[in-house]
Amino acid sequence: MKRLACLASIYPELEDCAVVTIMGAVAAELYSLGHRANFFYLEHAMGLASSIGLGIALAQPHRKVVVIDGDGSVLMNLGGLTTLARSNPGNLVHIIFDNETLLSVGGGAPGGYRWFTTATATGTDLAGVAKAAGIERAQTVRELDEFKAAALAAIKHDRLTCIVAKVEAEMPTSFLMDVHMLENRFEFPRALQRPIGERIKGGA
């Protein structure tokens, strides 16, 4: 399964959501589908995307928050899963793309050679970890149809959900993102502080 296809399958449903992604491939691929002001790309601080998502979810209980995380980042903040579980925000969807590699920080190479795998490559089951942390709705998906169905259901319903999507460790076609971090940082809260349903225009 490819990350980009997964992202494309839910992209139209992200229009009214607050979307927080991690750095690297996930950010670049979501951006490549069409940047929107309600997308925030966390370019550093690995592990904290879900914490930022939690802060938004608690501040705006009527806004759906979609965190698009990765195995390497989540493994840096496993405790955050327990904080999510006990805070239990019904408006948060935690998608974790698991490519079993620290791809975007240099753990992957062209041609698919993976020289720095994460612990999910040797058996760590992040959906199992999430479930054991107390997130009841946590599952692993391996097929695109399965991902799309699970993610769209989670966006529609009001239950904290964690979806671990097993994807290929593939570099994005391009890492180009023509939106400055600070531009993104300031447009994001402006988009979030508009009434839900009011059309959020992409770009600046």
């Binding site: 601080a45 592990g47 904290l48 914490s51 501040a59 903040n77 955050g80 904080t83 809260p189 502080q193």
Partner: peptide, 22 residues
Amino acid sequence: LVRLAKEEEGVGISAGAHFGGV
């Protein structure tokens, strides 16, 4: 009140709250 597992999470939570206007 958000009970943290480790303090660094709080930095992210506060940033999210700020983005959400709180």
